[in-house]
Design a protein around this nucleic acid. Structure first.
Lengths: 151, 151
DNA sequence: CCACTTGCGTCCCGAAACGGAACTCTGGTA
DNA sequence: TACCAGAGTTCCGTTTCGGGACGCAAGTGG
């Protein structure tokens, strides 16, 4: 009850978290980015229970993050693919990856994410749109925007 | 059971998610960034139950994301503050915010995150470390790194 | 000294979410 | 006709959760 009210709050952090902030949803998205698209493959690669996976996929499709498409090989199967809205989650994924590499990967990064064109590494940067400076949490202050609740 | 094995996987995305990927943990971190530091304030601002909050705070302290400190006004209280490791989560927070602003904020951004020095807006960018190009999911390919499990 | 308040939790119970195995349904294949 | 695979659905026992009651320690007022 109380938790569901969070989604109604005009906050661009809590609203995504009410969709993505559970045990499995973001892991499903991660697998989608890794090219895992079929129900059984998702289920086997994550170890999620089938009923839970079905539920999470439904929610992701409802929210327009994945789309469900028939997939033809010899017979009709289904596959789940990221929509443009889903693909926009990539910076979130790599921001988490950057943090994991720095703080939870004692043996070095398990996976490099490389720019296809030049082979360099992809990293997330927090920067000021006006002056271009690289920023940290201490350099930033929140201020009300147009979508804030009045009052 | 099965879920706990995920934390053992050498993946810099799943490992953070086993800590942060539940209903409340990341919301607690978000409040910490907003300057909410005391138990009762966290509880009231999020609507999380007290027992759950106590548990989540313990886990965040265990993982070195928050630290518990005595706080003196007239008597002894406790406060929870972000460690450096916790502060490093800011790009994740703003990456989620960017996505939320774009896809879940029909009335415009509820909150601006402004550079203290120049008043510009802080945004997250995905870029190539070598050539400097701005990247999207389609421009990036994963490749094994030093921390990958052998075999 | 004793009652009262405040901050910070813990305990407990009914409700919701979860995991896993079994089952269903659809569409090939032999 | 029997068999198999993919994609879920159903069911049930377990885990986690929410929320109110309770505990406790440190001041505060009388």
């Amino acid at each position: 009850m109380r938790y569901e009210e969070l989604i109604a709050q005009p906050c661009s952090i809590t609203r995504p978290l009410t969709v993505l902030g559970d045990r499995w949803t973001f892991l499903v998205v991660k697998q989608a980015f890794a090219g895992v698209r079929r129900f059984d493959d998702l289920q086997a690669s994550l170890g999620i229970s089938r009923s839970r996976l079905a539920d999470r996929l439904d929610r992701l499709v409802e929210h327009g993050i994945l789309r469900r498409e028939p997939y033809k090989d010899t017979r009709t199967r289904m596959e789940y693919r990221l929509t443009d809205k889903g693909l926009d989650l990539y910076p979130v994924l790599l921001a988490i990856r950057d943090w994991g590499d720095r703080h939870m990967a004692p043996d070095g990064p398990p996976v490099h994410y490389r720019h296809r064109d030049c082979g360099g590494e992809a990293h997330v940067h927090l920067a000021c749109d006006r002056c271009g400076d690289e920023l940290t949490a201490r350099d930033v202050a929140p201020a009300p925007g147009p979508g804030a609740a009045e009052g």
